[in-house]
Design a protein around this nucleic acid. Sequence first.
DNA 1: AACGTGCTCAACCGCTGGAGC
DNA 2: CGCTCCAGCGGTTGAGCACGT
Length: 233
Amino acid sequence: MGKGRAPCCDSSQVKRGSWSAEESEKLRSFIEKNGHSNWRSLPKLAGLMRCGKSCRLRWINYLRPGLKRGNFTKEEEDSIIQLHQAYGNKWSKIASHFPGRTDNEIKNMWNTHLKKRSSHVNNHSVSSSSSSASSSISSGFTNVIKCESLPKEEQFEEILGEHMACGFEVNAPQSLECIFQDHHIPPPPPPPISKPESLEIHGESDLELWSQLDEPGLDDANEWLNYLDNKTC
DNA sequence: AACGTGCTCAACCGCTGGAGC
DNA sequence: CGCTCCAGCGGTTGAGCACGT
């Protein structure tokens, strides 16, 4: 650490470990009355012997209203796997697709259950991805990108959302990455630019069209998706 | 009943990026 | 421009529980 910043709190002054019901209630009622504009000073103001970070975690992962607790549904699990293909370990990003679920919860779910399942699905999808990718580029999905009022990044988010809702399989987001990477939209994890797998399924010389997208602008991406859309409708 | 093992999940730790000075 | 502060994020840990022997 050296001359780095001071520790967030003095460990001799704060309580650690599990939260009691009383502490949780104190935190909840304080935040409901006063909000949480400053986590650092919050514990003091709320009369808690806790570090601000700890309060924040407790609130976000446990006390926050609207949290959906309990088991994940099959659909949620499938979506997590798919989103993980697109985002990697960006748990907060993934969690944003599941209102009421926390990044911590999803991260735990992934590490304990889905990691194994995903590797299985991944292997399986290598052989079957083409057809599933083709059928899931629905017109609804394509319409999202046409909503040009949204910033590009949001468009990408929207697309992925639709995309997952369509049951689009794992390597499809990577195709999208190819299309959008020049828009400086935060990319999903690699692979490098290449012709999307989904092209081959149409049995046409799609490479030609792809090659025209050397410097794809958003319109090019639209064109591309329209093309795919037409092919699948 | 006692013990060992594996699993779950709340919580902690350390790092990063943005904002303010 | 560099420093400090802070919120937020992702990785990791460990207490508690369930289950098998």
